[in-house]
Every structure is written in structure tokens, then in C-alpha cells.
Amino acid sequence: MRSNQPVDDFGRSRQRLVEVLGLFTSAYRPAAGRRYSCIEDLVLSHGRWFTPSPLPTDRRPGPQQRCFANASAHAVIYGLTYVEGYATAASSAPFPHAWCARPDGTVEDPTWGGDGRAYLGIPFTNDFLQRQDALGELGPLLFDQHITGWQFLHDGIPGGAVAEVGLPMADA
């Protein structure tokens, strides 16, 4: 997996993303009964790296500030993997974000197009997404945890929910 940007910029963007998420994680202790202190802790524990790439020219980005809806629809239309986590764009702090991943771990970001610099997130299987939809719990999976009683922070990510795409943080 290679990025179109210089390796140094790519590495610095990843490093900055991890540093910022680490600040959140170090500021919180897991509450009683929780495995993870916060969503950032969950993403740092289970996240995978995805390689930035331009959006194909035949695909137009969706509206800004609608990344979860854009990525969800884009994944279904183009048969890609839906991912939630944190990403950075040019000269920005990490943002909660959703995007799509191709089987090789490259990003197809239907919101930012090709402006992303670093992507760290959890890819979800289509089966898991369909189960969540049937339960009426499909929406931002990581960032709407208050709706499901902080399920992922308490119990971790359910078996069979994570797709095997992207580079696990431990392997980077």
C-alpha cells in the first residue's frame, strides 16, 4: 500500500493522529464495567491503518459534514467496506470520520475526496452492518455509543464485526 504523498508527510500525519488520540486516552480511566476508557482507546486498540488515495474520477464526493451517511451509501453502491474512526485532512486535527476501504486497504473517501492524510479506523463487515440495521441501530457505530449504552466500551467489539482489511496498528 503506497500513498501519493511523500513518505515523511504520511508518517507525520499518522504519528500526529496517534498522539492526539493518546491524549484523550490518557485523560480518562475506564469507568466501572468498561473495557475501554473512551472511543479513542477503542480505536487505538483495534484500529487499522488505511492508505489515502484519490476518489476515482467517475465518483463525486457527497456533502461535507455527512461522512457517516456518505460512506454508508458509498459502501453499498460500490461494494466497499465501511470504516469508522479518525482521520486527518491537510493541516487539520484528527476528526471522527467515516470512509470506505478497498480490499487492498486504500481509502475511497466519499466526503473528503482525496484530501485525507491519515486514516485510522475500524472496518465493519457487511453482515454486522446488516444486523445493526435490523436492530434499528445503524448510524455512526462508534460515535453514537450513547444510544446503545456504550456497548463497545463495555463489551468490546462483537465477534465477526471487524472486516479483515487495512493494516492493524500493531503491524505498522
Rank of each mutant, 00 (worst) to 15 (best):
R66Q: 15
R66C: 14
R66L: 11
C67W: 08
F68H: 13
A69P: 00
A69M: 09
N70Q: 13
N70F: 12
N70T: 12
A71W: 08
A71G: 09
A71R: 06
A71Y: 08
A73G: 06
H74F: 15
V76S: 13
I77M: 05
G79T: 03
G79A: 01
L80M: 05
L80S: 04
L80N: 02
T81Y: 09
T81A: 12
V83C: 10
V83F: 04
V83D: 01
E84P: 01
E84M: 01
E84N: 06
A87P: 02
A87M: 12
A90I: 08
S91E: 11
S92N: 03
F95P: 00
F95M: 14
A98D: 11
A98L: 09
W99T: 06
R102S: 09
R102D: 05
D104N: 14
G105C: 02
G105D: 04
G105R: 07
G105S: 03
T106V: 08
T106K: 13
E108I: 00
E108F: 03
D109H: 05
D109R: 03
P110N: 01
P110M: 04
T111I: 02
D115K: 12
G116W: 02
A118V: 11
L120F: 02
L120P: 04
G121K: 01
G121F: 07
I122D: 05
I122H: 08
I122K: 07
P123L: 11
F124M: 14
F124S: 08
T125F: 13
N126Q: 14
N126I: 05
F128I: 00
L129P: 10
Q130M: 10
Q130W: 03
Q130A: 15
R131L: 11
D133F: 03
D133W: 09
A134P: 11
A134E: 15
A134C: 09
A134Y: 09
G136F: 09
G136M: 09
E137K: 06
L138I: 12
G139Y: 05
G139M: 01
P140C: 12
L141M: 12
L142F: 04
D144E: 13
Q145H: 03
H146Q: 13
T148I: 15
G149E: 06
F152E: 02
F152L: 13
L153P: 07
L153D: 06
L153Q: 03
L153W: 08
H154C: 09
H154Q: 07
H154P: 00
G156D: 13
I157W: 05
I157F: 10
P158E: 14
P158H: 13
P158V: 04
G159H: 04
G160A: 07
V162D: 11
V162T: 15
A163K: 07
A163Q: 10
E164A: 13
E164V: 00
E164K: 06
V165W: 05
P168E: 04
P168K: 04
M169F: 04
